[in-house]
Design a protein around this nucleic acid. Structure first.
Lengths: 339, 339
DNA sequence: GTGAAAGCGCTAACAC
DNA sequence: GTGTTAGCGCTTTCAC
């Protein structure tokens, strides 16, 4: 199984190695006749280009590092999928790193990828602050796009959903369906999703009820917190629980039903992200779908556009519009079926 | 940001490139004094080895390709996580491919990885039969380990859970808790998990009830099928629904409750895999946990052990023992709490 | 124990 | 349009 090299194809087709390279890589114009001969020889010998040699010479590996906090976070798999497809379509390969939600591990993985000469990095930072140093250092070396979460202003290009718009969609929907006593169940901390979604709730809820902006409970982005929050909040009888993500919503929904609450009759529950679990809950969760495919496409576009040494001042933040998905947790099933 | 190379470290430390290489790679014994000087110079200049150059010369990239059917399948993320950690611990990087459940895409991704000179492939085949050709071809070129699913006998080394043992755990548990009229809800097709789990049910169920082996309904590994199966089966009042995976079980459980069934009072429901959803269902699903960490460790071990041109006849299949996780869908909550 | 030299397979200048 | 000539940065003989 000795690998066929350019040299052997050149020998077989009677021209130089450089010409063969040009034909096969399409780098520069080549005579039609020669091209045909070369291609035939390459085909016949079963030539497969050696990407490592190519990378060494051309100083570009065609490889992108994808660094994420925890692949087991249910929102990430679909994002990974879209990114993999978008990048593969451009002939690039994806190196994957899972950071175990730890900034130290994250820094190590970033370093390992840089050592492997990735052309660019796609990164969902573990932490708004504690990831910043490693991210900034990496962004100085290769094009780097932040996804889904921010990492401080001006650190790198970033692509994320428009959290405020998503929250507004939810509030409009609840207002339109007659809810007047909403309550927000969010996450504490500085993560951009947590902060932005809460701020948008506070800004928009006053339209339903002057007191609504103050009804905010903060925990973390987990099912367990959703359950606990339901226990705390239900005695005050809100008519809508607006949760900062689907995990919280799933937990809240489950506990509300255990407490005997009628969902959506007495109380609506909404989530955010539209992870697979959202459609499986009972009743299924009304939620905000992130435009995962567009996020991936936009991230890929930013990566290829930015030259290696681009001006840091030109950093861009792209915000994409989310979509409201109405399901049974906010509206009776017959209404959905009838619409 | 000119990269520091061995040459510069050599110049700075007053010895040859070769010596520097030997010190930094630890390939061969080097004088203690020289080593110290070299290391200091490398440190001071901020030397970072270029993996691409190393790969070209040493013909090993330190890279493993991980090819899977669909990262959005909820069983895979935790497996990917464990594999990434196990491989990173050995200094290897993971190239990820998502095949969209399509054997043609799968073959393309395998080819792309081979072109990138991966040292080895870790592969969860899309299809028992339609993946075989590409897998066999790849296995002839690099060490290749099949994970979770088989791909025909003797095609490659493989690591998977012992499905029969898992099914036996479920049947023993149900028998011990007094169930006597079980029914199996599985998946049609030739996928090894589908076949092995069904066969194990048929072999073991007769101990509970001579007629049980015949009570088998086959669809696919989805929530929707679980719901449909519950509709079909509930009229015959089984006292246990043994599902081939957690998605089926989640669907069946949801529908059974909608039909007014008392779970676990009237009927127990069990799953397989222990995906995150299993713990979130209401009541939480009794299921069989795959030893994900061990699967990953064993796969990594097989990869590093097998020499490139190993004898095809020495192919190994490793089966790892699963673990029963008893939750509320098969046993009343107070029993679990009290145990 | 250390250095000199020869490439790994490919692409990029530079001539013609 | 095509060939010739240099390497990319590293590891690895082969001498000493």
């Amino acid at each position: 199984m000795a690998e066929v090299t350019l040299r052997e194809v050149a020998l077989a087709s009677g021209c130089s190695i450089a010409t063969v390279s040009r034909v096969l890589a399409g780098t520069r114009p080549v005579g039609a006749e020669t091209a045909r001969t070369v291609r035939a020889a390459a085909e016949r010998l079963g030539y497969r280009p050696n990407h490592v040699a190519r990378a060494l010479r051309s100083r570009t590996t065609g490889t992108v590092g994808l660094v994420l906090p925890q692949i087991t976070n249910p929102f990430f798999p679909s994002l990974v999928r879209e990114l993999e497809h978008a990048l593969h379509a451009e002939g690039r390969a994806v190196l994957l790193a899972d950071c175990d939600d730890d900034p130290v591990t994250e820094a190590a993985r970033i370093g390992a990828f840089l050592g492997r000469q990735v052309d660019a990095l796609l990164l969902i930072p573990v932490d708004e602050r504690r990831s910043r140093e490693a991210v900034a250092a990496a962004a100085a070396r290769v094009p780097l796009v932040l996804l889904d979460r921010g990492c401080g202003p001006g650190v790198a290009d970033s692509v994320a959903v428009d959290n405020a718009a998503g929250m507004a969609l939810v509030l409009d929907h609840l207002a339109a369906t007659g809810r007047r006593r909403p309550c927000f169940v969010g996450a504490a901390g500085t993560a951009s999703a947590a902060v932005e979604r809460r701020a948008a709730y506070e800004a928009g809820a006053a339209a339903l009820d002057p007191a609504a902006s103050g009804r905010v409970e903060l925990g973390d982005f987990s099912v367990a917190w959703g359950r606990a929050a339901a226990d705390r909040i239900w005695p005050s009888r809100p008519d809508a629980l607006i949760c900062a993500n689907d995990l919280i919503a799933a937990g809240a929904l489950q506990r509300l039903r255990q407490l005997g609450a009628d969902v959506p009759g007495e109380v609506a529950v909404t989530g955010f992200d539209d992870i697979p679990l959202a459609g499986l809950a009972d009743p299924a969760l009304t939620t905000v779908r992130q435009p995962v495919g567009e996020l991936a496409a936009e991230a890929a576009r930013l990566l290829s556009r930015r030259p290696a040494d681009a001006d840091p001042a030109s950093r861009r933040t792209v915000r994409l519009a989310p979509q409201l998905v109405v399901r049974g947790s906010s509206v009776p099933a017959d209404v959905i079926a009838g619409s």
